[in-house]
């Protein structure tokens, strides 16, 4: 198999099995819903505070659900000994990484797109004229989280205490994504002109590029030979 067909095949396989079981996406979705509800209760917000707090709450919910999805991503492979088959096959390691990255990214993005209307309703947001920008920020932030996350998900799946180690390793590293995404989302919501927050989107894009390349390169050392 060549490089790109491995990517396509892996991502397609994940999507098909997800379509059949709907395990990952539904658990991610309900977890995110609960996170949002708990945040809303614990802050008891009015309209104005909701607007300032909402980007942070949204991204915390997204990242937490992302961690749930990422934790499951390689677990399924481990349970059916598929991981060993993947390791044994002479397929390029980078292709495995990219295939998993695509499926993780799509899962997270699907959940975020389902949740987004709920945010609009819960927090009375007024975003419909800026929807493309919003989606761009969503894509850039999600790619950053899943680029680092896929690497650590593969790393933690084969060790003890994997549920604890994934967030412990992942969360400090994605601080720039959180800052950039929250700031950009907040600026879009408050209706600032694009020039004020362009650098945040650029930061996200730079982070995505750097970490996709670095993770792609070091993924070779994650799987056993």
């Amino acid at each position: 198999m060549n490089f790109f067909s491995v990517i396509r095949w892996l991502a397609w396989k994940d999507l098909i099995s997800e379509m059949r079981s709907r395990e990952t996406i539904s658990s991610m979705f309900f977890f995110a819903l609960i996170v949002i509800l708990i945040f809303s209760f614990s802050f008891s917000m009015d309209q104005q505070t909701a607007k300032t707090l909402m980007p942070g709450i949204m991204w915390v919910a997204f990242v937490f659900t992302g961690i749930i999805g990422l934790g499951k991503s390689f677990l399924a492979e481990l349970q059916n000994d598929c991981l060993e088959n993947l390791q044994m096959n002479p397929i390029p390691r980078g292709a495995i990484y990219l295939g998993k990255l695509v499926s993780n990214f799509l899962f997270m993005l699907i959940v975020e797109l389902i949740l987004f209307p709920l945010f609009v309703i819960f927090f009375n947001l007024d975003v419909f004229d800026k929807l493309p920008l919003f989606v761009l920020i969503l894509i850039a932030g999600t790619l950053g989280v899943s680029a680092v996350g896929t690497l650590f998900s593969a790393m933690t799946v084969q060790i003890r205490a994997r549920e604890v180690m994934l967030p412990i390793l992942l969360l400090p590293l994605i601080v720039p994504v959180m800052i950039g995404a929250v700031e950009a989302t907040g600026s879009v919501l408050s209706g600032e002109s694009v020039t004020f927050y362009r650098h945040w989107i650029e930061l996200l894009v730079v982070f995505d590029i750097i970490f996709t390349i670095v993770s792609f390169w070091v993924f070779e050392f994650i799987l056993d030979h």
């Binding site: 680092v148 690497l151 720039p176 800052i179 930061l203 730079v206 982070f207 970490f211 670095v214």
Partner: peptide, 14 residues
């Protein structure tokens, strides 16, 4: 290695 790549980005973003 991943952490070493990340730290300068953290510094600039903060």
């Amino acid at each position: 290695i991943v952490g070493a790549v990340d730290l300068p980005i953290v510094h600039f973003s903060v």
